[in-house]
Design a binder for these strands. Structure first.
Lengths: 207, 207
DNA sequence: GTCCATCGATACGCCAGTGTACCGAAACGC
DNA sequence: GCGTTTCGGTACACTGGCGTATCGATGGAC
C-alpha cells in the first residue's frame, strides 16, 4: 500500500522480463518452503503466486500444473549433503554424515513428511523425491561402507551394512513422532556412535 | 437399484437404529482404510458416508467434524501388537517383535505415512496418533529392554538401548521410500539379527 | 525509438468438499 | 399398537482451489 513497502523488500527487483534461472530458483525455494510448512495437498498455485509476487498465469505457462511444478522444484534444487565426505575411515565418514544429516534435518525432515504420502500415490513425484532427496544420500552412505570394506575396516559381507542408510534416514524421520523433536546433530552422532558403529563391529571411539 | 443388491451384501443388517459399538467400529475401520488408501486430506465425509452406507448427517451428528472423526477412529481401534510378547530373553523378544511389526506393516505403515504430516500440524491428531500407534509399541519395546537389563543380559546403561524403538519404527517407515517395498517380516528379522542385537552387544544366533 | 514477447494481475467458470437443514422411514420403549 | 427417537438420503448455500482467458504494462532486441 504505502511506498515504504517497496523499501522493505530486499533489492526489489522489478521483474517483468523473462524468467531467469535465478528467478526459477526463487520459485523452487518458495515451493519447497510452502511444502514444508503446509504439506502437499495444502500447497496452492495461488499461494505460490502470491508469495513469489507473480501471476498464476506465469506458473501455468511455465510448469503446466501443480504436480509438475513440485517435481520441477525437487529436481531444480537438488543439493547434496553427503557425497563430499571422505575422512579416510568409515567411522569418521559416518560421524561426519550424522553431523551433516542432523544439520539438514530441519529442512529435509519436514519435506519428507510433507511428500511421503503423496509420493506413494504418484510415480513421478516418488521418482523426483527419490532422486532429489533419497538416492544421493544412500548412494553416498553406501559408498562410505564400500570404501570401508575395501580398506579392510569391515568384512566385505558384514550383514549390518545393508541397514546403515535405512537406519540413518529412518531414525531421522522417526524421532519427531516418537519424541517430538527433530533428530539433531547430537542425537544422530550418539546414534552412530552407540548403535551403527557397534553393529558394524567397529569400536566406539575411546572418549 | 435391483433387489439382488440386498442379497450381495453380507448379512445386510438393516441399520436404522441407534449406533451400536459394533457399528461404530465399522465406521472407524472404514475411516482408517480410506486414510491408508488416500491420505488425510483426500478423506472426505461424503466418502465415509457412502462407503459405510450412512448419511452425512449421521457423521456430523455423531462426531462433529472430520478431524474429530479421525481422532475417534484412532482412539476407537487401538489394538496392540507387541505388549503380549515375553519370551524370556531380550533377543527372543526382539525377534518376535520384528515378526509382529512386519506382519502388521502393511496396515500400519500406510497409516503412518498418511497421518504423519497432518499430525505434525494438529496437536489433537498428533496426540491420537501417538497414543494409538506409537506409544504402545515403544512402551512395549522399552519394557523388553528393561526386562533384559534386569535379567542381566545387557548392562543397565547400554547406550544402544535408547535407540531400539526408533530403529525398529524408523526402518519400518524408511524402507518403502528407499526400496519401494514394505518392511516385511523377513527384512525386519534380518535387521534385528544383524543390526539391533549386535549394537546391544548380544550375539547373533548361531545358525 | 519502436515493436514484440513475456510478465503480473484479475476475472471467470467449473468442480469438489464442508457443514446445515429438512424429510420420510424404520427401530425401539412402553 | 403408538409415539419418540434416531437413522439414511437429499438438497442447499458457501468456500476455496484449479485452470483458462484476457488485458495492460514493461523489459529487451533491433
Amino acid at each position: 500500500m504505502s511506498p515504504q513497502e517497496a523499501a522493505q523488500e530486499p533489492a526489489h527487483t522489478p521483474r517483468r522480463s523473462k524468467i531467469t534461472p535465478e528467478r526459477a530458483q526463487e520459485f523452487y525455494a518458495a515451493v519447497l518452503d510452502m511444502l514444508r510448512e503446509s504439506g502437499y495437498e495444502a500447497l496452492t498455485m495461488e499461494g505460490v503466486a502470491s508469495r513469489t509476487r507473480c501471476g498464476k498465469s506465469t506458473l501455468y505457462r511455465q510448469w503446466g500444473s501443480k504436480p509438475e511444478l513440485v517435481v520441477a522444484a525437487l529436481h531444480g534444487t537438488r543439493r547434496v549433503l553427503l557425497p563430499h565426505i571422505d575422512t579416510g575411515t568409515l567411522a569418521g565418514d559416518l560421524r561426519e554424515a550424522a553431523r551433516a544429516i542432523g544439520a539438514g534435518s530441519g529442512r529435509d525432515t519436514p519435506l519428507m513428511h510433507a511428500l511421503s504420502h503423496a509420493a506413494l500415490q504418484s510415480p513421478e513425484l516418488l521418482c523426483a523425491l527419490r532422486e532429489a532427496l533419497i538416492l544421493p544420500e544412500i548412494a553416498a552412505i553406501e559408498a562410505m561402507v564400500r570404501r570401508g570394506a575395501e580398506r579392510g575396516e569391515i568384512p566385505a559381507d558384514t550383514p549390518a551394512a545393508e541397514f546403515v542408510s535405512a537406519q540413518l534416514l529412518g531414525v531421522m524421520r522417526a524421532r519427531p513422532l516418537l519424541e517430538g523433536k527433530f533428530a539433531d546433530e547430537a542425537y544422530l552422532t550418539r546414534f552412530v556412535e552407540n548403535a551403527v558403529l557397534p553393529a558394524l563391529g567397529l569400536e566406539a571411539s575411546t572418549p
